[in-house]
Amino acid sequence: MATVTMTVNGKSVSGEVEGRTLLSDFVRNNLNLTGTHIGCDTSQCGACVVHVDGKAVKSCTIFALEVEGSTVKTIEGMANPDGSLGVVQQAFQDNHGLQCGFCTPGMVMSAAALLDENPNPTETEIREYLEGNICRCTGYHNIVKSIQAAAVAA
């Protein structure tokens, strides 16, 4: 076991982990931040996307120890400080950008990363950016609409 320290959603946290402990397991099991979902655990579905130092990464495909000293943002960090929904979250709610909701944390984190890089994406750019996020309800149309609305609202 080794100690890992990082900043998650603005708070400094640390915990004891094995070499093989994935970031997804660390945030869910050690920090009880269960908004990050593990859909496939094979690096394909994107439900576990979080931001590490501002970049979208699949938290099931990076070890917790690799994130030592980094800044992590999970879906729990997307709300406003008063607890109300952030811009991207609100856009998903307003546009029915979710059905079962399982993929939504990853969708929101990918959408936020896209809008950081490209504040006014075209529909094609949004769809291309979501290549690594799978929605089994196949609710992509409304997810794309949500991200377009978030771009306007931001």
Binding site: G46, V49, A113, L114, E131, G132
Partner: peptide, 8 residues
């Protein structure tokens, strides 16, 4: 891959 894969 996809954007998250390209970031790593």
């Amino acid at each position: 891959g996809d954007p998250a894969v390209r970031n790593r």
